[in-house]
């Protein structure tokens, strides 16, 4: 039989309410409180229950997580379940925090459940599968059942359904599905339009996500003493593409020394970007990576220095996660050389 470990707070463990919220992490063999309800519907043996006070987790998060991960080191388990946390905010934070840590460290699925009003849902729904639960413990059995239904499929290696069908919060992870109704895109499109024209409700298959902006970096005060670096997502590389950067869905980037050249020569550099007609960029790579004018600005003293390398990758089809990773790696190099500002050309 598969094995599960369950995380609950001090209140559901029957240890006490607010006055016991600083209760330190503890692991016990067997079932306790909500574990009984979970055990009844889960196709796995709940071997241990972990208890931690919500305030302890909230105030000493790192220590709490380390101690709990420590408890789990020598345990054999196939799934980790926390909560349900209902509308209890600190408990929700605790469930999200520990599930995220456990799945990262041990690579086992970690699931929890909480109400949509619980701030923990918003905080962790991208990282952890969180089922949409009730507001209070009165919903315990129902919430646990929904969660266990999904957990049981994972344990058996069965196919799981979409977030909506399974009942967990959307994580921003989309995948292809063949509709069992067999309804074609043409039929879906026309019927969606008919509904929209009639003022009836319809559901877009591609909801527009909210925009995520970053804080504006402080501006350069004096350009004439600043060191500038060049970056491109236009796939400009030496003709032999030494870093084997992919022409689409790139996972690699390269940096190339430009300290000894005044411009990028055709035949020495080219583009490997597959998303556009490469003729112009191959004939004169400076139209994508404007080294020639940057060297001129350097000569004129408009900028203080030019970073010795330019950085290149391909933008098309690259995942945001890969782009962010490559961006972080490039930032490390830029920081090492104390770069003050960046010009990024995109195609």
């Amino acid at each position: 039989m598969k094995k599960a470990i369950h995380y609950i707070n001090q209140f559901f463990a029957g240890i006490g309410g607010e006055e016991m919220a600083a209760y330190e992490p503890e692991i016990r063999e067997g079932l306790l409180g909500p574990s009984l309800a979970l055990s009844a519907v889960l196709d796995a043996e709940v071997t241990h229950t972990i208890i931690c006070g919500d305030n302890f987790m909230g105030s000493n998060t790192q220590e709490a997580v380390e101690r709990i991960l420590g408890f789990l080191e020598d345990k054999d388990f196939d799934i980790f379940i926390a909560g349900p946390a209902f509308q209890a905010g600190r408990y929700g934070f605790a469930c999200g925090t520990i599930c995220k840590a456990v799945q990262e460290k041990f690579g086992v699925p970690a699931l929890t459940s909480m109400n949509e009003e619980n701030p923990g849902a918003e905080m962790f729904k991208k990282d952890v599968i969180i089922f949409k639960g009730g507001k209070s413990a009165a919903k315990l059995r129902g919430d646990v059942k929904v969660l266990a239904n999904y957990a049981n499929k994972l344990l058996k290696g069965e196919k799981t359904l979409s977030a909506e069908e399974e009942g967990f919060f959307e994580r921003g992870v989309r995948a292809q599905v063949w509709l069992e109704s067999g309804e074609t895109a043409a039929q879906r499109g026309v019927s969606m339009l008919i509904k929209k024209l009639a003022g009836e409700e319809f559901t877009s298959e591609l909801p527009i996500p909210k925009q995520d902006l970053v804080a504006i970096a402080p501006p350069i005060k004096d350009l004439s003493t600043a060191k500038i670096a060049l970056v491109t997502t236009g796939g400009i590389v030496p003709v032999d593409n030494p870093d084997r950067i992919q022409s689409a869905s790139a996972t690699r980037w390269g940096r190339y020394d430009i300290s000894q050249m005044d411009r990028l020569e055709a035949g020495v550099f080219k583009t490997i970007h597959a998303g556009f007609d490469p003729a112009a960029a191959d004939a004169d790579p400076n139209v994508v990576m404007p080294l020639d004018v940057m060297k001129e600005f350097l000569k004129e003293g408009k900028i203080g220095a030019l970073h010795n390398y330019f950085y290149s990758t391909v933008g098309t089809g690259t995942t945001q996660a890969e782009a962010a990773r490559m961006g972080k790696e490039i930032v490390e190099k830029l920081k090492e050389d104390k770069v003050d500002g960046v010009i990024l050309t995109a195609t």
């Binding site: 994580r171 921003g172 992870v173 989309r174 995948a175 292809q176 895109a185 879906r188 499109g189 969606m192 339009l193 929209k196 319809f202 877009s204 298959e205 591609l206 527009i208 996500p209 925009q211 869905s249 089809g317 690259t318 995942t319 945001q320 996660a321 890969e322």
Partner: peptide, 26 residues
């Protein structure tokens, strides 16, 4: 994206509120 977690279209506009999606190229 290969991870299914990237921005689905390179530009987005809230006016495009009724879209049919036929798959993920990646």
């Amino acid at each position: 994206g290969r991870d299914g977690a990237s921005q689905p279209l390179v530009t987005l506009d809230i006016k495009a509120n009724a879209l049919v999606s036929t798959g993920n190229v990646s």
